[in-house]
């Protein structure tokens, strides 16, 4: 990704390193952070809320259908 970026001058580099923390640099930010281990209850909560969302989207679609049928 960063290889496509035009290179900046040495003066630019000095200016950037003076004013930005290293972790703010685009190249550093583009590096992936490691995965974290999800505990079973966290995973269960994620799935529960995912099912809740899918179910509720179905309810909203049904509500829109009812409203359309009722000529709202």
């Amino acid at each position: 990704m960063m290889d496509k970026t035009p290179k900046q001058s040495a003066a630019d580099t000095d200016f950037v390193l003076l004013n930005l923390e290293q972790e703010q640099l685009a190249e550093v930010r583009s590096r992936r952070l490691g995965r974290r281990h999800l505990r079973p209850y966290e995973l269960a909560l994620m799935w529960l809320l995912r099912v809740y969302l899918l179910f509720m989207v179905g309810v909203v679609i049904y509500q829109v259908y009812l409203a359309a049928r009722g000529g709202k």
Partner: peptide
């Protein structure tokens, strides 16, 4: 580290 245009603007 390579410096991008984005970095220069943010540094300003």
């Amino acid at each position: 580290l390579s410096i991008s245009h984005e970095d220069v603007d943010r540094a300003a």
